[in-house]
């Protein structure tokens, strides 16, 4: 059984080996003449202003959370889908209930505005104290 997975390991070794060889060749052939201007972070030709790693929109965080929830759902559905043909109708109803619960979750997120990227249309979760004061 595990023998089937060995070719993947062989492929991994070949692919990593290719990457290593290609990078080594480019390291040997390519010039290396660093200077202060060249090594500066690119920012349209001017000196970079501040650090790039500032705070970014919280929406990306919400998307990541939603992704985990729905990805888990997909993971639950995969084994069900594989054996679906052999299962009695009862299991179809079970999955239906599961799907309905998740759809309710999606509808809730939708109504709360978690899926809206346009702030003016986002209803609740994007509204911070700052917005209320304004």
């Amino acid at each position: 059984m595990q023998e089937q997975y060995l070719p993947i390991l062989v492929m991994l070794i070949i692919a990593t080996g290719f990457a290593a060889v290609a990078l080594t060749i480019s390291w040997l052939l390519g010039p290396s003449r660093p200077d202060a201007n060249k090594n500066e972070t690119y920012e349209c030709g001017v000196s970079p202003v501040g650090d790039a790693r500032e705070r970014f929109s919280v929406r990306f965080y919400v998307v990541a959370m939603l992704f985990i929830v729905f990805d888990l759902e997909t993971v639950f559905m995969f084994p069900w889908a594989v054996v679906f043909k052999q299962l009695p109708t009862f299991y179809f109803l079970q999955m239906l209930i599961f799907l309905v619960i998740l759809t309710v979750g999606l509808v809730y997120e939708w109504r709360m505005g978690a899926l809206d990227w346009n702030t003016s249309r986002g209803k609740m979760i994007w509204r911070s104290g700052h917005d209320k004061a304004a």
Partner: peptide, 13 residues
């Protein structure tokens, strides 16, 4: 061409 180019690593990276 790509193999013979310099690998530039930005200072801040």
């Amino acid at each position: 061409k790509l193999m013979t180019k310099e690998t530039v690593v930005p200072e801040e990276a």
